[in-house]
Computed example of a mutant assay.
Amino acid sequence: METQDIHSLIKHLEAASSLDAALAAAVHNAVCPIGAGDLTLPADGGLFSTDEVIHLIDEALPEWSIKLTGRASNINGHWVCTLRQSEVRDNDEVIGIGQSAVLAHALLAALLKVIDGRPREV
């Protein structure tokens, strides 16, 4: 997936309050290649439950830290997810930060930002 497409997908995902079939398919297509054949993706629709997304991140980015923050006082909450390779150092090559009113969307956006920031294989 091209960088511009991923940026557009992330922007759409962070703004969405729910996922239609087209957005769900686009996220699924963007996430599939990171497993290089050994990543187990959840059954239809499961990719978008918070538990399944956390499990997906755990499989795709082993040993990475997941930091979630939110404000319950905002309408629908306001979630920020940060994915980092290290909690100790500040020199991570790639950091994924996603924001959304929907927790699963913030997690997925952060994962997509990590995917986009990783060096491409030639």
Rank of each mutant, 00 (worst) to 15 (best):
L111R: 00
K11A: 15
A106P: 02
G117I: 06
H7M: 12
E93W: 07
A22H: 12
A104V: 05
A15F: 06
E63L: 13
G98E: 02
A36K: 14
I54M: 13
I10S: 01
S73D: 14
W79D: 02
P119D: 10
I10T: 08
F48L: 09
A25F: 05
V94I: 13
L112A: 01
V31A: 04
L56C: 04
G37H: 09
A36T: 09
L9R: 05
S8D: 13
D38G: 09
L9A: 07
T40D: 09
A26H: 06
L41I: 10
A106S: 15
L68D: 04
G70I: 01
G37S: 09
T50W: 06
A106R: 06
M1R: 07
E93H: 10
L83Q: 04
A26W: 07
D5C: 05
L111H: 00
K113H: 04
R118N: 10
L107K: 01
R89D: 11
E93Y: 06
W64G: 01
L108V: 05
E63Q: 15
A30V: 01
L23K: 06
V80Q: 13
E63A: 14
P119C: 05
P33N: 09
R118L: 13
D116A: 15
P62A: 07
E121S: 12
G98Y: 00
E59W: 01
A22L: 10
P119H: 08
L56T: 04
D92K: 07
V80Y: 03
C32L: 15
P42K: 03
G117F: 04
D44Q: 11
V27D: 01
I95N: 00
S8A: 14
E59S: 14
C81F: 05
G96Q: 02
K113P: 00
R89L: 11
L68E: 06
D51N: 12
N74Y: 10
S73K: 08
N91L: 07
G45Q: 09
I10F: 04
R120A: 08
Q99S: 14
E52T: 03
T50Y: 08
